[in-house]
Write a protein that binds this DNA or RNA. Structure first.
Lengths: 118, 118
DNA sequence: ATAATATATTCAAGAAATTGAATACAGGTG
DNA sequence: CACCTGTATTCAATTTCTTGAATATATTAT
């Protein structure tokens, strides 16, 4: 039963809609918190809380670069789990449409036009 | 986010060690409650409670045959999820050793010798 | 040194999950 | 019908999760 305990901890991490959305976001590589904030439309503190849960589950790692902190998935095998679950429900989640603008250096390089900040 | 809500309900069902053990048990086909009780070593009411959660999540269905109630997985795709998760943890759960004897007709046909009941 | 920015952490109230105990119920047997 | 057997359901106490609010921290800019 100890093995199941270990698995159940991971399922617990996936048990939350916002955390699933975050993981999907990170499929394409690392992202900073402001990016997730912009894409998902939740308050910064809330996103950080969910990131902490995923980190404590051993799924994410963070890296600081100047003011921004970038998160990335350190167990890509988790995506196979998510893909398999998607076959159970049969529904593919829609790509998130950017709710707010993100001002991090990475996003600044993005395609969409934005105001120059001084 | 509604799609994630639906997925998260399923992850919630998998979030529990005993429920994972039950699902593993049902990989080989249907089983009656007394069987699970014997294999897992939990009280009957407790097993039934967990079965109810899995049923409400839409993963199981039950069938009555005389006094016994047989459960079976109606979404075998869930096993792919569990297999994928097992690759994340890297640990294979041990086959459960029968803790108690089971007296249901199916188990009576099993290999182990048992007393004849009148 | 002060302030601003990006993010993390702590706290608390409410909601949901866990689990033991008690009980209900349906089908079979005498 | 009364009783037994296998299983489901209800209840309540406890623990855990959720989430908003407030606050702390690290880095950079002035």
């Amino acid at each position: 039963m100890e093995t199941y305990q270990q698995e159940s901890r991971l399922y617990k991490a996936l048990m939350h809609p916002v955390r699933l959305a975050i993981l999907d976001l990170l499929r394409e590589g690392e992202a900073c918190v402001c990016h997730m904030e912009a894409l998902l439309g939740f308050r910064q503190a809330y996103i950080s809380q969910q990131l902490m849960v995923l980190r404590e589950a051993g799924l994410l790692e963070m890296r600081r670069e100047r003011l921004n902190i970038y998160y990335r998935v350190i167990r890509p095998e988790i995506f196979a789990v998510m893909d398999a679950m998607r076959k159970v429900t049969g529904v593919q989640p829609a790509r998130p449409t950017k709710v707010n603008a993100c001002t991090c250096p990475n996003c600044a390089a993005d395609s969409e036009p934005r105001l120059i900040r001084l």
